[in-house]
Design a protein around this nucleic acid. Sequence first.
DNA 1: GCGCAATGGACTGATTTCAGTCCATGAAGG
DNA 2: CCTTCATGGACTGAAATCAGTCCATTGCGC
Lengths: 238, 238
Amino acid sequence: MDMPQFDAGALPMRPVRRGNAFEETVERVLENLKLGIYGAGTRLPPERELAAQLGVSRATLREALADLQAAGYLVSRRGRYGGTFAAEVLPERPVPANQGDAGDLEDVLLFRRVVESAAARLAAEATLTPAARGHLLAALEEVDHAATDTFRPKDARFHIAVAELSGSSRLVAAVAEVRAQASDLLDRIPLLQANLDHSQAQHRELVDAVLRGDADAAEAAAVAHLEGTERLLRGFLG
Amino acid sequence: MDMPQFDAGALPMRPVRRGNAFEETVERVLENLKLGIYGAGTRLPPERELAAQLGVSRATLREALADLQAAGYLVSRRGRYGGTFAAEVLPERPVPANQGDAGDLEDVLLFRRVVESAAARLAAEATLTPAARGHLLAALEEVDHAATDTFRPKDARFHIAVAELSGSSRLVAAVAEVRAQASDLLDRIPLLQANLDHSQAQHRELVDAVLRGDADAAEAAAVAHLEGTERLLRGFLG
DNA sequence: GCGCAATGGACTGATTTCAGTCCATGAAGG
DNA sequence: CCTTCATGGACTGAAATCAGTCCATTGCGC
């Protein structure tokens, strides 16, 4: 941890813009694809609507979509009932040789732990509608039956589903964001079958705890689950 | 809680832009002033540097600073050893009649609880350098001796100081952001002397727990402290 | 005193981004 | 068939934003 901890004046102000609108739009859409929010073959919202959601003009959004289409992430169809669809199979990502800071690795992992364990606890404490329970179980089934090459997005989707049960939109956003960041790191290390099996068991444990409203157990399950990938990441990258 | 919880496709993508660069820059700088990151009379970084921190061109930053100067939040001095300074006394804020969503109130409070309690716990678990301990105590003294009209910024500064001890820059950012949002809400309700005294005691308790490394006590103190303002806010706004 | 140097102030032209408009496509439904 | 209409595709002119340059001011050290 090498933070500029003291001298308030030295704390840099958090950026307002991280790049141009085009780049950020590409990144955001890609993030949603990688997290499996839009699974293979599903339709994205119409451009006009998506542009509004992203707070960006349709022209800018279209540039971003065109790039993603050229890169094979998206397919467009014109005409009524057409639209923009997530590709059936996402292209291999050209490993971003960029090694990322090690300090940043710990930062992401720590923050992930904070938000995801809280999400698990709050989900367990919430009173769930039958629909909510069904949604959670469906997400669990999805990730359980996922082939190894579709595991990560479905895993992310599952964890976001848990966060949604917490009822806090800010928490959902935080989980999604930190997942996306962690996902970038995870793409640089191999996916081990043993670890995958272990994950499934932990997912079930988490769901069980949430469904029976056991907040402590839910939090513990979430933390145990996270620690697994933390160890992997530290091993391969640290 | 009225979240669009299911049907992933319906989850809107998180905005990339929340407004134009100018507005966001004003907001960000104002946020830092209100949080007391730049206390009365202190000097902000030079424009060229600040623009870089914010990821915005100097022209845009200057427009924002000009507005804030016109509104009495800032004072500029030219020449070497000149600069832009936080005004000695911040203008009364023109209460933004805007009532804000009630659902959003709960969302902010919930997320604040998540990040701040985690920050308190992590701060207590961290091994603190003497400098860090001194910094924390200094922040405590500051808020302790604050007059009622300077209480809120120093209070925010104190809580951010705690978060800094956690060693996670993401957590610090999250605390600062949620504080700023809560601060907007707090400005709409009166500051009660009794509540203020209560706060001071809770601050001491939190600091004690952090300094002796008692994570459970630190978290408990933080939660107790937050619940105080939560009740106030719900009472006046809910 | 004098010049150095760091700062805010002001301008210019290029680039990005925007809002708005109209066109092209093509499945659904008659 | 033919019409309908929600969608992607393409263009325009305006506005915002940028990077870069030069100017104006002023306290400090020589």
